[in-house]
Design a protein around this nucleic acid. Structure first.
Length: 374
RNA sequence: GCGAACGUGGUGAAGUGGUUAACACAUCUGGCUGUGAACCAGACACUCGUGGGUUCGAUUCCCAUCGUUCGCC
């Protein structure tokens, strides 16, 4: 599809980090980029205006959850997800592959697809690669994802091998089922932490010539060295000129490690979820706003942050709102965390352009106080 | 003044003649990674109003005392 392509503008001379512009039907966005997650067509507590104001590019929504409610026909009748939720920028829908992992107790996998038992009413839902594409075409995002199996970690080699092969067949089936030509369908590399499987997965997907590639099956509880291994086992076998999307990554260290290894896109619920639970990402590391030590701390959350929350409110006030379970507190904390990661990406892009991403990464780590990093 | 009931952690409260005194809330502390998550986990009463007695052993039984509440003059 002609409206969708990655323009790589610079590759950092210190690392493999890439700076570029991703062209989409809903505008151009710079990479590396962090994509906030709005599973049910809303990034929890935040308005589209706020997101755009924070510099957000792509946001995510979820096929499985939107299929359950309100149903893709509603999205279709609304004129697509952009109109439905009033988000003017690019949107990506995840395929439901992550739910194959997260809803493991309520699903069965076969060659044909996955049978879920709805977590809402217990009804049976058949997800096939073809159906998942059809749903995503009705939802109408700019980027859609192949249906895959996100495997748990660790898994037996034999199982991983079977799963990877099946996910490859699903990718092909999904691609063949695609009718619309204005949505970029991404393939997803799997293979757990097995080098040959990751390579095989990446090589075979590349042969199918997708407009973009994702690396899945990471950040599901594996140790950091395994996480890095999974990236390094995948990236070298993906085409240079296509966007690379590392799924489910949102902690500061994982983001930086991903960028330095040539990843362009990341998504994660982490900033929004932990914000609602009172945890904040700051330039000096993690802050748990509920801690008693902030009761009379009238300084901003992060002196180095330019977000609305840090510009207008104190830790003491934010703590008060959190302890009192006020909705406004969850909004202010979400605003901070999302802006923090978007801002981190802006700084990362600057560093890449200046050929000093390696130094930048070190500086970020060094600014963490104690072991309170992410 | 008389009668009755009750006195258990910050709060509301279970409970038993015998190992670590429920539970909830509050408080404190962690965790959360393609959202089944405004969620989950852990900590928190050297002690059951006070004094004495019975008993091998009392928060639990008895007496006294203080306090609270209710009822009656």
């Amino acid at each position: 599809m002609k409206d969708f392509y990655l323009e790589i503008k610079h590759i950092c001379k210190q690392t493999g980090a890439r700076y570029g512009v991703l062209h989409t039907p809903h505008g151009d966005v710079e990479v590396p980029m962090f994509m906030p997650v709005g599973t049910l067509a809303t990034v929890k507590t935040l308005s589209p205006e706020e997101l755009i104001g924070m510099g957000s590019g792509v946001i995510l929504a979820n096929t499985y959850h939107l299929h359950l409610r309100p149903g893709e026909d509603v999205l279709s009748k609304a004129g697509g997800i952009h109109k439905f939720m009033n988000y003017p920028g690019p949107i990506l829908t995840d395929s439901g592959g992550f739910q194959v992992f997260s809803l493991m107790d309520n699903r069965k996998i076969s060659e044909e697809g996955v049978t879920f038992k709805s977590h809402l009413d217990g009804s049976t839902l058949e997800f096939t690669p073809e159906k998942v594409i059809a749903i995503q075409e009705k939802i109408g995002a700019d980027i859609i994802m192949s249906f895959d199996e996100c495997m748990p970690y660790p898994v037996e080699y034999e199982y991983a091998k079977k799963s990877v092969e099946r996910t490859l067949r699903w990718a092909q089936r999904g691609q063949q089922a695609q009718l619309r030509d204005d949505q970029a369908l991404f393939g997803i590399v799997q293979g757990s932490d097995f080098a040959d499987l990751r390579q095989h997965s990446a090589v075979e997907l590349t042969k199918m010539n997708f407009p973009g590639y994702a690396i899945g099956g990471t950040s599901i509880g594996e140790p950091k060295d395994v996480f890095i291994k999974m990236i390094e086992q995948s990236v070298p076998f993906l085409p240079e000129d296509k966007p690379r999307y590392l799924m489910g990554v949102g902690s500061i260290d994982f983001l930086l490690e991903g960028i330095s290894r040539g990843i362009d896109m990341f998504d994660c619920v982490l900033p929004t979820r932990i914000a609602r639970h009172g945890a904040l990402m700051t330039s000096i590391g993690r802050v748990n706003i509920r801690d008693a030590k902030y009761k009379e701390d009238f300084s901003p959350l992060d002196a180095n942050c330019d977000c609305y929350t840090c510009n207008h409110y104190t830790k003491a006030y934010l703590r008060h709102l959190y302890i009192s379970e006020e909705t406004f507190g969850k909004r202010l904390l979400s605003i901070h965390n999302v802006r923090f990661l978007i801002s981190l990406m802006e700084k990362a892009r600057r560093a890449i352009k200046d050929d000093r991403f390696g130094d930048f990464k070190k500086e970020v780590y060094q600014s963490f106080v104690g072991d309170k990093g992410f």
